[in-house]
Amino acid sequence: MRILKMKPDFLKEFLMGLEGFGALYGPKRQSGILKYAPIESYDELVLDGENTLLPLKRLFHPMRFDMFRFDSRGFEADYSIFEKRVIIGVHPCEIHGILKLDEVFLVHPPDPYYAGLRKNSAIIGFSCLPAENALCRSTGTDIVAEGFDLFFVDLTDFYLVWVGSSFGYDMILEKEDFFDENVTHEDIQIYIEWREKRNRMFKKSFNFRDMPDIIELSYKSEIWDYFGKKCLSCGQCTMVCPTCNCYNVTDVLDLATETSGRRERMWDSCMFADYSLVAGGHNFRHARADRLKLWYTHKLKAFAHKYGSPACVGCGRCVETCPVDINVLTVSEALTSCEVPEE
């Protein structure tokens, strides 16, 4: 992987010049809320450590869209959501989140909507300093080795720019003069000091590594009932989680004919009462405690069984979002302190 240097003065011109590679997207404040949205001017871009309300998945796993129209002859997929995009300002945890979604959506057979959006999008990552609830040091997702086209590390006096793909290299070639290949020992030292400084800034952590075992041991724990009693079943935790990917599909029939209509796809949540409802009115997880247990077991244990590592990327959004404080921190703390014998 090539690593280049760039002076901060060039950043604006370089990023805005990427328009030739696709429509620019990035974190942008709208009515006080930070969202991934189309960027019209450089000043709109928010490149600090703040989390967007909804994670990057919203650009790859659309919240609500029509998959296709159907009639008596068959169906025709609607790929009108595809668009060449360059997404700027993506933090390491977000990149890890998308890599997890890749595991789910790109395995055979791939989801054509996710795959198409992914193929048409370039990711320009940006380093960040830990926000109040950042847990990415605990989850090991504070650095990235893949999943980006370019990655900018902000070292104040200069950027170190990791080139992660040939497409990223094409972008560099557009403005070759902005970049310096000569990374000195001194630069490396500055980078290492930045890493150390950043590592000291994390205010919160949790026992991520031990959670798979602890969750397995806690299957019958009354801790789940405690959280189940509190949970409002609002589903916000799943919406803001970068790796939650469940959706529901609904066939919306046309009024005019009984054989035609459209299939709509919309984010769903395992926190909702009808999520585990099956034919005959049976519901496997009617109790809130069972819904929560499913989520945390899947997130912190079961995902790892299937894909190699747990699905939490430590963004801290569940900590910021849940109105009744049910999140990876409180759940892992409760399970660790109450279910495992005290020392």
């Binding site: 809320i33 309300l53 909804l54 079943s233 609002c234 984010w267 109105p323």
Partner: peptide, 18 residues
């Protein structure tokens, strides 16, 4: 059978309960 919060979050609103 979903709460208002479902669409509220998809509309990227900050939770008013917070």
């Amino acid at each position: 059978p979903h709460p208002v919060c479902h669409e509220c979050k998809l509309n990227e609103n900050l939770c008013l309960l917070l």
